[in-house]
């Protein structure tokens, strides 16, 4: 007959945290950073169907790394939370702070009570009227929240990328400049350094110049123009509605963890 081993609560929590951290560090990184006209989200993600970056509400967006099915659940829950709140009160009553709080409580409960913690790290960001009122919340697998200023990197190599962003980022950069900075950091994996092209990237912005729904995906020719130093394009055109997303079913591409 086997004897149940005693495991101290400290050890139990440490094991869970290690488990979650390992899962998160395996995936490719996502960078969220402020620019003069809003907030940009950049991920290395070759899939066109399985997004790491999504719209939540008028001025709020979501980015995540880790296990796809787990952060997808959280994303859907966030959209439901926001739409229900906006419907029963008013659109202006949906805030990133409220959503970040709900996510924190949810992740915290799952971390301590479920058989395994979620292997995810997420960012909830909201643009304000001015850059000073922008909010970026980073949520960890255990439900801890950090209120970030300017930029966040998460996922594999996050520490190295954060160091790079600290050197390169300053307030008031235009969109082209922050995208080049982020893409440079995402491609720089220590020694060789890879050149990431537009079709390997998932990029979106919360654009302060837009009315109502400010979220906009940036891809194709516009993204190439923004990433190029020779091209004068430095922001999303204000009257551009963007391509209508084709309703293609998810392809067989494996969700990247």
């Amino acid at each position: 007959m086997s004897m149940p081993f005693y495991v101290s609560p400290e050890q139990l929590m440490k094991d869970r945290a290690d488990y979650a951290r390992k899962g998160i560090a395996r995936g490719r990184a996502v960078v969220v950073l402020a620019y003069d006209g809003g907030i940009a989200f950049v991920a290395e993600n070759p899939s066109r169907a399985l997004h790491k970056i999504s719209e939540i509400y008028d001025r709020i967006a979501f980015a995540a790394v880790g296990k796809y099915n787990e952060f997808e659940n959280l994303r859907v829950a966030g959209v439901r939370y926001a739409d229900l709140r906006g419907y029963s009160y008013d659109r202006s009553d949906v805030t990133a702070r409220g959503l970040a709080n709900a996510y924190a409580q949810t992740l915290g409960t799952i971390f301590t009570q479920e058989s395994k913690p979620y292997e995810v790290e997420i960012v909830v960001a909201q643009i304000g009227e001015t850059a000073d009122q922008d909010q970026i919340y980073r949520l960890m697998y255990d439900g801890s929240v950090a209120d970030e200023r300017g930029f966040v990197a998460m996922g594999g190599g996050a520490e190295r990328i954060t160091t790079g962003l600290k050197q390169g980022w300053r307030p008031g950069l235009d969109l082209g400049a922050v995208l080049r900075l982020a893409v440079g950091q995402l491609g720089d994996d220590g020694d060789a350094g890879r050149e990431l092209s537009a079709d390997q990237l998932e990029v979106a912005v919360l654009d302060r110049h837009r009315q109502r729904r400010t979220f906009r995906r940036v891809s194709g020719g516009l993204l190439e123009a923004l990433l190029s130093t020779d091209d004068p394009t430095h922001d999303v055109p204000p009257d551009d509605e963007g391509p209508v997303e084709p309703g293609s079913p998810p392809t067989a591409e494996a969700p990247e963890t």
Binding site: N73, T106, G108, T109
Partner: peptide, 12 residues
């Protein structure tokens, strides 16, 4: 109080 503030299971 944790359970009241968290997103209900049906949301997930």
């Amino acid at each position: 109080s944790d359970d009241e503030a968290r997103l209900p299971a049906s949301y997930l």
